[in-house]
Design a protein around this nucleic acid. Structure first.
Lengths: 341, 341
DNA sequence: TTGTAAGCGTTATCAT
DNA sequence: ATGATAACGCTTACAA
């Protein structure tokens, strides 16, 4: 690591003081034009770069945003991309930490980022996270914080996320519209916000359509293809198996599809299937899978914008909650009546 | 942002000097046990956290690694995950910047990270990158740097990457073994390292098998599903179309597959197809797609390890080059002879 | 218009 | 065993 040019070097070379150099570089009004010119010229020539560390120490601002996410799957990668884009534009650099769905790592990451004096946090909590002391710590220090995607309700923090209830609703209503009667749901781990919301939507719609909610058709399983496959196998070996399955992720839909095929059932004839996220893979498999689009990239951009707004305004935004509407993309796995909807 | 506790606060409260506090906290040998105990107790009580900015300013070390990648697709997300894991373990935090395949953004990112005084760089260059002044700038400043995945040859920097030539070789040899005679390749943009290497492997094997390399069967196209689809369409409308296609990414393989299906051709009977990356999607589509596995997660981990090794050793490692061997996963899209290989 | 000096939080050197 | 002081690179009163 070579010596960096500092204002001292410039000051020394020009036989002036560092404060004058500092002022000249920042175009202060009270510097003689010639001095200013000389300083700038030399700075340019020596490729002077101000030391951000020193500035940060002084201002307590690092122009850095800490982002904590549970993983880097398709959806979150798209969101991060959106965040990154907007942040870069606004002159911020992003520090992305993955908790890998582990509460412990989330804590560690939070601490790291706090220690690094990030100017604020953009967080999506892990599926394990049930207690929020680390989040409250951020709040207590009055550090700007936005929760996105996997948010925490009942916490006085600006939030931005998909309308997951609505997502569950449109998926379920669609299956009912297609004539399916016995609709199972593959949910995520219990207590997981987005899973519960999607399930809530599912239950609302069943009730509205006078369909009994059958506990045996509600399966909590890991957010994971293989678990979903196993769970589906079991569902299909029930005495009165479901005639449709709504999975709260596309990975799980793929797993379900595998089990369905192994069982020799045909979609959409024998059984309907709807996934969630609208990942590209849904239109690549056969049959293609209907899925709920969540506009991950846009959510990412909106998150960063909300964050920046919060950072630069002094009105309290802790009650802000932006909710993005999902949209169902109907594909072969669930479309029985060609012209409906 | 609330006031942070500093050693001054502790010193003041205990009526001792900041230097003593500093020593006590770092368990220096020459501090009276009682003093030490008192300092530590108070630090604990006040939840004292050393100010990293101040430390960094002093030591010129930030415990931060700058990672620059062209995008966050499946492969790179897996690599980043590997890097993140190892870095975290070693006490480093990672700043990930996406160049979005843009040379300009790569420059900006490099500058940002230099300004942030990262302790070193882990870089995979964008597909647009053809001139390397920004990389050389890093080198000139004697900042540790490792190139991974999309590396630059002829640059005296430690590198780690897949054996892409071998990847191209095994894919092509496999197609020949399966009896395909006229093998096309969908490559990436011209001048792109990994693309050229995979193509090099392809050509080597053709020559070894006394098959003429036909320029018309070499298509440069964007790393992208739709381009691949169009390119494949054109290939298939040639007077003597290919009977097999090797695409240098799975996304492109998907595009090729779409075009093949639209044309009414059957894989592997009428035409063979092999992709690259071994993304999960390859085994989900019908027919499943043979693909070259590149062990992205492992490459990520190995990259971070190489980087840390370099950071902590003072022997010159600039000639280090780690090359990972790929492996072909044969699936339906190319397997004509059931028991071969 | 410019320079001096203090301060951001910490550590290292040198006294005591 | 402890304290005073300088230093990291920069900004900003305050003085001149």
């Amino acid at each position: 690591m070579e010596k960096q040019i500092t204002i001292k070097d410039i000051a020394y070379a020009l036989h002036i003081s560092t404060s004058t150099v500092s002022r000249a570089l920042r175009d202060a009004s009270d510097v003689k034009p010639e001095t200013k010119k000389a300083v700038k010229a030399l700075a340019e020539e020596l490729d002077y770069q101000p030391n951000k560390l020193a500035l940060s120490l002084l201002n307590k601002r690092t122009n850095t945003i800490g982002v904590i996410i549970p993983n880097l799957d398709y959806v979150l990668a798209a969101m991060v991309k959106g965040i990154d884009e907007v942040a870069l534009e606004a002159g911020y650099t992003v520090m992305v930490c993955q908790s890998d769905e582990s509460f412990g790592r989330e804590i560690v990451n939070t601490k790291r980022l706090l220690d690094s004096f990030v100017d604020g946090f953009i967080v999506s909590v892990s599926s394990e996270t049930k207690v929020f002391e680390h989040i409250k710590k951020i709040q207590n220090r009055k550090i700007p914080l936005v929760l996105f995607d996997r948010i925490i309700q009942n916490l006085n923090v600006p939030k931005i996320h998909l309308d997951n209830i609505e997502g569950g609703r449109i998926a379920t209503q669609h299956l009912i519209d297609q004539g399916y009667k016995k609709i199972a749901i593959l949910a995520g781990p219990e207590n997981m916000g987005i899973s519960n919301d999607r399930m809530e939507g599912y239950m609302q719609v069943l009730k509205e359509n006078k369909i009994r909610v059958d506990k045996n058709l509600i399966i909590y399983c890991d957010f994971n293809q293989d678990y979903a496959r196993e769970a589906t196998k079991e569902l299909l070996s029930m005495k009165y198996p479901p005639d449709a399955i709504f999975t709260i992720s596309d990975r799980m839909a793929i797993g379900a599809m595998q089990a369905i095929k192994e069982r020799g059932l045909k979609m959409p004839k024998d059984i309907g299937l709807v996934g969630f996220n609208n990942e590209p893979v849904t239109s690549l498999v056969t049959p293609s899978i209907s899925s709920v689009e969540m506009y991950a990239y846009d959510i990412g951009k909106a998150t960063a914008k909300l964050f920046l707004e919060m950072l630069h305004s002094d009105v309290d935004m802790s009650n802000e909650e932006i909710i993005i509407k999902p949209k169902l993309f109907v594909r072969e796995s669930s479309q029985r009546t060609p012209t409906r909807k």
